[in-house]
Design a protein around this nucleic acid. Sequence first.
DNA 1: GTCTATAAGAGGATAGAC
DNA 2: GTCTATCCTCTTATAGAC
Lengths: 208, 208
Amino acid sequence: MRPESRSMRDSILAAAVQLFAQYGYHAAPLRDIARIAGIQAASIYHHYPSKQALLVEIMETHMQRLNTSLEYILKETDDPLQRLHDAIANHIRLHTTYKAEFFIIDTEMRALEEEHRPYILGLRDKYEALLQELLLDGMERDVFRRSDVKIASYAMIAMCTEVATWFRPDGRLSVQQVITIYRQFITEGLLHTPEVVAHMPDGAGHLL
Amino acid sequence: MRPESRSMRDSILAAAVQLFAQYGYHAAPLRDIARIAGIQAASIYHHYPSKQALLVEIMETHMQRLNTSLEYILKETDDPLQRLHDAIANHIRLHTTYKAEFFIIDTEMRALEEEHRPYILGLRDKYEALLQELLLDGMERDVFRRSDVKIASYAMIAMCTEVATWFRPDGRLSVQQVITIYRQFITEGLLHTPEVVAHMPDGAGHLL
DNA sequence: GTCTATAAGAGGATAGAC
DNA sequence: GTCTATCCTCTTATAGAC
């Protein structure tokens, strides 16, 4: 694609991301997307075949980004706990960096026409499978408590994904702080870790 | 409201719930809602002033249901851990019983017109505040580990709410099983609880 | 590559008969 | 309380000039 068209193509996509996230796919008129991009509605069709194509491209790009990064973590790291930490950080970092894009993925699946839905759902299933692989491995190696792998993956994905709903770059917490808090919640839960140290003969060896 | 109209009013609302959940608010035509309810589109306006009124009524009814039940738990129960268990069970039970209704609340907030949004958001904020009250109390009484109360409430709500997305009454797990798994995940996290018992002098007193 | 003009249709809502 | 008929607006998408 030549440079002069590449730029307008990106502007249109950026405008679509903004309005799809703000009003939802069906409530975002193509005219408004065009206006933000600085052209007429009809001109969009020189760059994209339909409104639906904009949605598919947004979802495809970022689901692939998510999958590629998790595949990299699984390939490069062996320790289950380190893998989990990296996966949580990766998920939250991407969902705060591409906040609007992932919010669209999370809320506009229904807006996908039959033709494209299986493909995008496949990408989402792939991510779940990768995370489940991570969790199962950690359970088999006795690092994680044995529990329902599917439910654990759903719960993790749901809570880390929702960060895209409320996170504000200028808010109370930095991305790194959010990651640290979620990491501890996911690994240790809400309850106090039992005070093991007090019962041990020599009082040595803090667990944390 | 008289009985003969009450029935059609409910039929219309039930049809709206079905189609709003299936296709989304903007993609669900009033004509289709009417067809499922067994009347003509124009007849809906005898029972509701607008399409928007259907959405507001669905959201209002079930957010109030959620708030009332959590308020009851906080009033009747004092023990923080028991309160947490009850709150989780209550949230998941309501979100599986009124699956479509809560799915709409979770995905169609953007479809609310300015006039009604503050009211519904207020009900949602109220629920978050109640849960945060529960969590803060548990931390101050040293039952829960001290951590960020807001984040903990967001995480809990996100993971328990998403059950409405994938739960199937005829699926692999019963509602009670889902509740038990979530409960353990939220309280204990993914990691093994340290094997305290082995280090204790008499080996007595299982923690769980 | 962008424009103007417009097709073609769907949508929410209203009027007024019965 | 429900119907038929219809209004009015908005929307995606296309045709063809520049």
